[in-house]
Nucleic acid binder design. Sequence first.
DNA 1: TTCCCCCGTCGAAGCGCTTCGACGTTCCGT
DNA 2: ACGGAACGTCGAAGCGCTTCGACGGGGGAA
Lengths: 337, 337
Amino acid sequence: MVKITDVARHAGVSPSTVSYALSGKRPISEATRLRVEEAIRRLGYRPHAGARALASSRSNVLALVVPLRAGIHVPVVMQFAVSVVTAARTHDHDVLLLTQEEGEDGLRRVADTALVDALIVMDVQLHDPRLPLLRALERPSVLIGFPAAPDGLTCIDLDFKAAGELCVERLAGLGHRVVALVGSPPEVYVRGTAFAQRVVQGFTAAADRNGLSSSVHPCEASPAAARRIAEQLLREQPALTGVVVHNEPVLEPLIEAFEQLGLRVPADLSVTAICPDELAGGLRVPVTSIAIPSAEVGARAVDLLMRQLDGTPCPEATLLTPRMTERASTAPRTLNS
Amino acid sequence: MVKITDVARHAGVSPSTVSYALSGKRPISEATRLRVEEAIRRLGYRPHAGARALASSRSNVLALVVPLRAGIHVPVVMQFAVSVVTAARTHDHDVLLLTQEEGEDGLRRVADTALVDALIVMDVQLHDPRLPLLRALERPSVLIGFPAAPDGLTCIDLDFKAAGELCVERLAGLGHRVVALVGSPPEVYVRGTAFAQRVVQGFTAAADRNGLSSSVHPCEASPAAARRIAEQLLREQPALTGVVVHNEPVLEPLIEAFEQLGLRVPADLSVTAICPDELAGGLRVPVTSIAIPSAEVGARAVDLLMRQLDGTPCPEATLLTPRMTERASTAPRTLNS
DNA sequence: TTCCCCCGTCGAAGCGCTTCGACGTTCCGT
DNA sequence: ACGGAACGTCGAAGCGCTTCGACGGGGGAA
């Protein structure tokens, strides 16, 4: 293994100079720097991560806790993970993958052993048991999602309440008067998953504000459940002309079910969704939707972490404004419907 | 930060004794060990990962390279990742997440800086450019998937050829004489992704062996593409009664398309698939399928790595035998069809 | 009893890097 | 022309842990 002393000898300088040339923490003359870089290249030098971590008390590794729970949409999680890794690399950091299964102990372990410098936690519950731990940890963290009481913890997420509102406002603007929300599976609400609940809040608030008649329906992630919900909706709200879907796996089967029940989308029924663009755009009837900006959330989460590590002040709460993409599933309410 | 010397002082022993008590690399008397453990508990001691890595030249971290490419089924990747993390934890290791985007440089970096002890690489191509690098690295690695020439690299995967064969044998055993394979998207084959090609080999070999008339159809991962393929199949092979699907997103829309074209599953058409059980079992017509045993593959991959790190000899190639789960989508060929 | 060896423990020497204080030089302001 | 700041570099001291060799004491073999 080639080490910093080898490089130093080769370049005719001391090891500390090599270190400073690499880190830039002290000024080094152009000439010396070039010689050092040349030596590094010749010898193929790579600083030893462990040694570096020990001496600098920085591992340059971030922990990412991914959820495994039922009812969460896996591709979205994966997108987050990938964007976090990509963003971390632009800051010269790597990402350690933790599963939620490891729970609080896992968080404590990687933080206490100094394996990681900071943590990113996904799938935050309203009353997440990990919050006290994260506050007690001597390392920065960022939550993707909002708990009921952040209290000093840094959080970032799409503004799901605004997303719920936006879906309704859009439908209201098109003249729809009776709307329904087809939401995530019941267990997601039971757990108190923040984003799901916020969608409901936004949906309900906007419906009330606009004087719409509305209803909310959690829905299992299966085609069969979608069909049942469709039938139920038509039975209970025959005047229904607007539907908001916040449940990825159910979006397509739900639309199919409506059509099989004789409702054309968007002629008889307008549909908006909160889901990835690939999903919304890839359906037979492309769906007007609000995407979760995973890439942006991941990148910003990493940025927030870096600022905390720097000591730069950073905002506690970051809510990303939802953006709606118009597609073929929405239309003005027709008079005969 | 509480360190090993603190524990040693507290327990009235030397730091090396604490270390040995922890690692078990030298015999320590029961009494001493208990005192050490007690001190550790009292003080909440956690060994510093960097220091440990530096002194022992073991980081206890594994690298996992996940694919990002088009045409791969994300939930399956996620399952692998989770099972690798879980398995790694049972061996006291953590997992560093690398995206394929980082490519060979990323592999080299984490290996050369001793950030990781060993590597797991997914989505291996037949002629994968990373193979020479992996061979040159001084660290063990395991490929999930088989390249054309492993040549000294350890590989593990489901035996996809056998899986392709098994699907056909099952259909042949039920009396079907005309079969088709609906495969992965074309780019997957173009890239030379091993598992996709092996399914085709197995499918074709078994069809020939049984004297079946057969055809192979790559298929884009969209409902529309599924419909087109269904129509094309009925047009070109009107006597078709058996279909093998190796393309997760297309499985459901394909069956729907067949039914809309007037073919009942399984009465007129038997379907087998290679896909996760959750998918196969969750459809309106549960599909007889062969699952990719992600959990097993992940766990075994980690085991293989651990054996290499131990110096224990381990097999170069591990092919997992496919197991078929009978569901409602297969039936004997009826005489009138 | 004597010799050996193994058990259980200790002390010291690093692992490869960063960082702090120090020191000579140069360059600026006055 | 001189004091002082800023520059560029070095040496040494660790960071917290593992591991090697050593050593005293006890037990088995001869």
